[in-house]
Computed example of a mutant assay.
Amino acid sequence: MLLKPSVSSQDHAIGKADANLVIVEYGDYQCPYCGAAYPVLKELMREFGDQIKFVFRNFPLSEIHPFARPAALVAEAAALQGKFWEMHDAIYENQSSLSTDFLFELADQLGLDPTQLQSDLKQDSVEERVDADFESGMRSGVNGTPSFFVNGQKFNGGAENLLDLIRSNAS
């Protein structure tokens, strides 16, 4: 399966902007498998962040993870204050504590403006961003989380497999 749409400047990306290796994760903030993949992906970025571009797209499985969508919305609202990755990391690092109140505690800990956050959460654009990510996942053949794409192609494996693959290609 191919990634649809391709990575663009609209995506949340870290690493090397013009990297030859682009990894996209479709993730759910409450998914235990995404939570387990998170430290592996952090290791991947520590080792190869100067060589790869890593992109995160929201894929909240709301039926089974009631806090996945609220977490995605808060992360997108945090992005409007320039703190997407800080919120992304804070959510995954505290995944077992997820609740609506806790998301606002994290926002407070990250120094986000609470009035701005509340206002941004009411913006259609925040919800539309999460919906657009989810829809792109559906169009790309994502049927569970985490799902990875490497240079636009679906990667059939988990974060550990991805790290092993990149390590073997780097050596």
Rank of each mutant, 00 (worst) to 15 (best):
D89M: 03
S96Y: 06
L98D: 04
E93D: 12
S97D: 06
V142C: 08
F149N: 01
S96L: 08
G157T: 13
N156F: 15
A107N: 04
F104R: 00
G141T: 01
P146K: 08
D113Q: 02
Q109E: 14
Y92V: 08
G111C: 04
P114M: 02
N151K: 07
T145E: 06
L106N: 09
T115E: 12
V126L: 14
L106A: 15
G158K: 05
H88R: 05
W85Q: 05
D101W: 02
L110I: 09
A132H: 01
S97G: 01
L112S: 00
W85N: 07
F104C: 01
T100Y: 05
S97E: 08
S96D: 10
L121A: 01
I91F: 05
S97L: 09
F148N: 06
A107M: 10
D89C: 08
A107D: 07
D131Y: 09
E93C: 10
T115C: 04
Q116P: 05
E127W: 07
A90T: 07
R129P: 05
G157S: 13
K122D: 08
Q153L: 09
P146F: 09
Q116K: 11
E105W: 00
P146N: 04
Q123P: 02
D124P: 05
D120M: 04
N151D: 14
E86K: 11
D124H: 03
S119H: 03
L110A: 07
S147F: 00
T115G: 09
F102D: 02
E128D: 13
S119C: 07
E127G: 13
M138C: 11
G152W: 10
H88Q: 08
P146C: 08
S119M: 03
L103K: 05
V150T: 13
D113Y: 01
V126D: 14
F102S: 02
G137W: 03
D124N: 11
F149E: 01
E86T: 06
F155W: 14
P146R: 03
M138K: 15
L112E: 00
S99D: 09
R139W: 11
A159N: 09
S99F: 10
D108L: 15
V130F: 11
